[in-house]
Simulated scan of single mutants.
Amino acid sequence: MMNIRIDMTDKVAIVTGAASGLGQATALKLAEAGAKLCLADVNGEGLAETQRLLAANDGTSITHVADLSDPAACRALVAATVTHFGRLDALCNVAGLIYLANSPEMPEELWHRTLAVNLTAPFLLSQAAIPHLLDTHGAIVNVASSAAFIGEAYAAAYCASKAGLVNMTKAMAMEFQKKPIRINAIAPGGMITNIVTNFRPPEGCDVELLKRFSGMRGTVEVDDVADMVVMLASPAGRGFHGNCLSIDAGITAG
């Protein structure tokens, strides 16, 4: 029987997108495993709520309000974490956003913002974190999406950013094959998070095309995805490097 023990005692992790959804669930589960956390998000009120939930269960955390589309904010987040805790063991790049639009009509600024948050920010955060993660033999976990592997109508920027994130993960893993760091990604299917509840299809869209976003088995449980992030961030994920693990209820099976 497989027995996976997740132990993050005395380890420090950054979780982006920690104000809600998958980021919040990941933070709670990392704290349960013993990690100390830096919680990052653009939503300060949501971060305060996540911190309150952690404190209620004796979790140790600091919060850092940051717009990750700003390169300086990415570097400052890592610096603040290491300054406060003195180390860094895991970087969990959970933050992400999606804007649906007819491709010919998508505003240029929304294209750039999608790529900035979903792809560039994980790269810049990794740049800043890697020297510290090499010291602690730590891990990076990037949250991609099933949209990295299948086309989704009206989501060209999102699909491009998540596909780029998967291959960035693999490229960086190859670069660090001989170094004591693990770099992996996960690719969830649809989850009931703020992204889904705030889902706004573009005007005049083809509803039949939108239905292809959903698999026959429905959405994925947020807690199940968070468990996978935590496993890869922890020493229990020692056998994984350069992988992208799909948890999408079969949506990319065919």
Results as ranks from 00 to 15, higher is better:
residue 1 M to P: 11
residue 2 M to K: 13
residue 5 R to A: 11
residue 6 I to M: 14
residue 9 T to W: 04
residue 13 A to N: 05
residue 15 V to P: 05
residue 17 G to R: 01
residue 22 L to R: 02
residue 24 Q to P: 03
residue 24 Q to D: 08
residue 25 A to G: 12
residue 26 T to S: 14
residue 26 T to W: 03
residue 27 A to G: 12
residue 28 L to C: 12
residue 29 K to P: 01
residue 30 L to D: 01
residue 30 L to I: 03
residue 31 A to E: 02
residue 33 A to N: 09
residue 33 A to P: 10
residue 33 A to M: 09
residue 38 C to I: 13
residue 39 L to S: 00
residue 40 A to Y: 03
residue 46 G to I: 02
residue 46 G to P: 02
residue 47 L to Q: 02
residue 47 L to N: 01
residue 48 A to W: 00
residue 49 E to F: 05
residue 50 T to R: 02
residue 50 T to V: 06
residue 52 R to D: 11
residue 53 L to V: 04
residue 54 L to F: 06
residue 55 A to N: 09
residue 56 A to S: 15
residue 57 N to F: 03
residue 60 T to K: 12
residue 65 V to F: 01
residue 66 A to K: 00
residue 66 A to C: 07
residue 67 D to S: 13
residue 69 S to M: 06
residue 71 P to L: 12
residue 73 A to W: 08
residue 74 C to M: 07
residue 75 R to K: 12
residue 78 V to K: 11
residue 79 A to P: 03
residue 80 A to G: 11
residue 81 T to N: 11
residue 82 V to Y: 10
residue 85 F to I: 13
residue 85 F to L: 08
residue 87 R to D: 15
residue 87 R to N: 14
residue 92 C to D: 10
residue 99 Y to H: 12
residue 100 L to V: 05
residue 106 M to S: 06
residue 113 R to I: 10
residue 118 N to V: 09
residue 121 A to G: 07
residue 126 S to I: 02
residue 128 A to E: 02
residue 132 H to A: 01
residue 133 L to Y: 06
residue 134 L to N: 07
residue 135 D to P: 02
residue 138 G to E: 01
residue 141 V to E: 01
residue 144 A to S: 15
residue 146 S to E: 14
residue 146 S to K: 11
residue 147 A to D: 10
residue 148 A to I: 07
residue 150 I to N: 09
residue 155 A to W: 13
residue 155 A to F: 07
residue 158 Y to C: 09
residue 158 Y to F: 13
residue 158 Y to L: 12
residue 162 K to M: 05
residue 162 K to H: 07
residue 163 A to K: 07
residue 164 G to F: 08
residue 165 L to C: 11
residue 166 V to Q: 09
residue 169 T to G: 09
residue 172 M to S: 07
residue 174 M to K: 12
residue 174 M to D: 12
residue 189 G to P: 10
residue 192 I to R: 13
residue 192 I to A: 14
residue 193 T to N: 10
residue 195 I to C: 05
residue 200 R to G: 03
residue 205 C to S: 15
residue 213 F to Q: 02
residue 214 S to G: 05
residue 218 G to M: 06
residue 222 V to P: 08
residue 223 D to S: 15
residue 223 D to A: 15
residue 225 V to F: 02
residue 225 V to L: 08
residue 228 M to N: 05
residue 228 M to A: 14
residue 229 V to F: 06
residue 233 A to S: 13
residue 234 S to C: 02
residue 237 G to I: 00
residue 240 F to E: 02
residue 242 G to W: 06
residue 243 N to V: 13
residue 243 N to R: 12
residue 245 L to W: 04
residue 246 S to N: 12
residue 246 S to M: 10
residue 248 D to K: 01
residue 248 D to G: 03
residue 248 D to L: 02
residue 251 I to D: 07
residue 254 G to N: 15
residue 254 G to M: 13
